[in-house]
Amino acid sequence: MPTPNAIPLPLQHIASRPRRDLPEETQQPIRGLPIRRPPQWHAPLEWLVRALAMLAVLAIVLIFAFLVKSALPMWTSGEVRKEVTQAQMWFATLWPGYDTPQNVWQPVSEVPKFGLWPLVTGTLKSTLVSMAIAGPMGVAAAIFVAFYARGRTREILKPTLELLAGIPSVVLGFFALVSLATWLQDTFGFDSRLNALVSGVALSLAIVPVVFTISEEAIRAVPATYVEASTALGAAKWQTILKVVLPTAAPGIASAIALGFGRAVGETMVVLMASGNAAITSWNPADSVRTLSATIASELGEVVFGSAHYAVLFYLGLLLFVFTSLLNLLGGRVIDAQKAKVKSR
């Protein structure tokens, strides 16, 4: 006769391979307990997960490898080096037909000239204009949403502002090209309708969501006890914000700016459509500019595979990749450090 309240013996599962993340003693089967073996087909699927993850890693490695591979002829190929050298790209060169040494970008001409300064200044100009707008606006909006907006307002405001991030950059470029450029020219009377200011303003709309989202997170990560302590000491809200919250959140805000900057440098469609695409070296923001990204976008289509021009365009891509990666690393590191700091308190 069976015992009335027999408790079934617990099952145990033994991993097919020893798991390094669990203590040694848990890996040994317990004598007397039935062992449960999961179906055989789990193992191949598990390997599939690993393989797919490796595919993602591969993609990242491949991007860098192929940029380098395609830009490499700049150093290794004699033919390419006859047309372009690092010195010609970065310094002024005395070209036939010119009176003084100059750094110009004229990749398609009898004597191709691959001077990068017009592109670098162009990129910096429209990027700085966009950061001058998006930086303060993004941070100010983050302060408002994190500090003054409450309940429903906050819940509606935040996704609405983040909706800006959902606007495709080609739409921003189109808007800048067709409407914004006209409005700004009517107001300021620019000589060239499309210029660094127009593209900078449009670009700022693409950057603001980045700055806003990350700064808002940084501001909300400031421990409530800081705010309470400051208020208890008699500080007004604005004093608490300026003297306590912002300094504590400063690393996060700095990385928001860094990541926004990286996005602005690499953003393509907006500047391609709204910057005028003239490779002029000047610091006047009302001049047309041509950026590094727009140069790649507009010239890669017509370039001969394997030519000097082709290698130079990949070299520009490599520059963008390295520069944005550095900014990303910097921004990511600051965010991590801040998270650790806030946690440890």
Binding site: I60, S169, G266, T268, S293, I296, L300, T324, S325, N328
Partner: peptide, 12 residues
Amino acid sequence: NLAGVPSIVFGL
């Protein structure tokens, strides 16, 4: 890092 790579670089 991949998240911050400019989209034109993906084109390349």
